[in-house]
């Protein structure tokens, strides 16, 4: 337990350093945007009749620093504000705190991505086990072939084709909103089923494009495990096929956890396409739209939040791995 907490603490420190680096990066990036949006904003507010100090205060509210201060002071102000979890004010949604907008978009992205990762993992692992056990029959080889093909098709293409086939050409599934506007949100069956129906296509896009990776990885892992001595020994002891299956599945399953970090980053990154194509109001769509309207505080915060989500998910996955695999828990 103590080792677990120590490892968690070390990971959290690393995460903070990474978040700090990303925040610093966006701070300097905004300065490099052609046309200097901060100065332009200041100019615009002054022309609207604000005094110089009023305008500067407004800009400070948006970006987290006073535009006339020297750069190091600006940076300190910005970091101070970040440390208080204040991400500034939106420009396109005048005066609304960015944190507020981000937090209302976060559940949609998390819902899609977490459900997507878990379902993809389950479907892929089951497919991989079948592909390995029946690898000499047409069932196994067709799973392998389908997996390799799906693995080669980029995610946004899968989403685009799904949107074309099942939402516009044959409008079977709804898209364009997370739920029908007529239904009021709440813990009711009508609302939840409607929410689920709207999420079917986006999540299906995750599953179809991620299936191949997990199926192929699981197949390779199962095939390796099948050759292990303890499986042979168990077979010689005459264990039931169902128990043999459990032995294999459990042991083959573990190495896959190391890929989970990659899958998490990939899925969060891919969410930007899924959300754009299905017009789903998550963080990715927010980030894209904020660029269109030059709302840089919002863009910066959306990017930061996506990164934080990836980092936190990685830590959760790693901690889960140490809980599941006793060898990792006792080592070190």
């Amino acid at each position: 337990m103590r080792g677990f907490l120590l490892r968690l603490a070390r990971r959290l420190v690393g995460a903070l350093v990474m978040i700090w680096a990303v925040a610093t990066f966006t701070f300097f990036l905004i300065r490099m945007i052609p046309g200097d949006p901060v100065a332009a904003q200041l100019n615009m507010l002054e022309q609207q009749g604000m005094s110089e100090s009023q305008a500067a205060a407004r800009v400070a509210g948006m970006y987290g620093f006073y535009p006339k201060d020297p750069l190091p002071i600006q940076y300190l102000h910005y970091m101070q504000q970040m440390a208080h979890l204040d991400l500034g004010q939106s420009i396109s949604y005048t005066g609304v705190p960015v944190m507020h907008i981000i937090l209302s978009a976060l559940p949609y992205t998390l819902g899609l991505v977490v459900t997507g990762i878990i379902l993809t993992f389950i479907v892929g692992v089951i497919g991989g086990v079948f592909a390995a056990i029946y690898r000499n029959t047409w069932v196994g080889s067709s799973i392998t072939v389908v997996g390799s093909i799906l693995h080669g098709i980029p995610q946004f293409m899968v989403a685009l084709l799904l949107a074309y086939l099942l939402a516009t050409a044959h409008p079977i599934f709804p898209f364009g909103a997370p739920y029908d506007a007529a239904i009021s949100p709440g813990i009711t069956w009508t609302f939840l089923s409607n929410l689920g129906l709207h999420a079917v296509l986006p999540i299906a896009a995750f599953i179809i494009s991620g299936f191949g990776f997990w199926a192929l990885a699981m197949k390779a892992s199962v095939v390796t495990t099948l050759g292990d001595d303890f499986i042979l020994a168990a077979e010689l002891r005459g264990i039931k096929p169902s128990i043999r299956f459990r032995y294999i599945a459990r042991n083959a399953f573990l190495p896959l956890f190391t890929y989970l970090a990659i899958a998490i980053g990939y899925t969060f990154g891919g969410a930007i396409f899924i959300e754009q194509i299905f017009d789903y109001p998550g963080l990715g769509l927010l980030q894209l739209n904020s660029i269109g309207v030059h709302d840089y505080p919002l863009m910066q915060a959306a990017f930061l939040m996506i990164t934080v989500a990836v980092i936190v998910s990685n830590i959760v996955a790693e901690m889960l791995y140490t809980v599941i695999d006793p060898r990792i828990r006792t080592a070190r």
Partner: peptide, 9 residues
């Protein structure tokens, strides 16, 4: 760790 498409955007 940094998700590449949000970064590219």
């Amino acid at each position: 760790t940094i998700p590449s498409f949000p970064l590219l955007v």
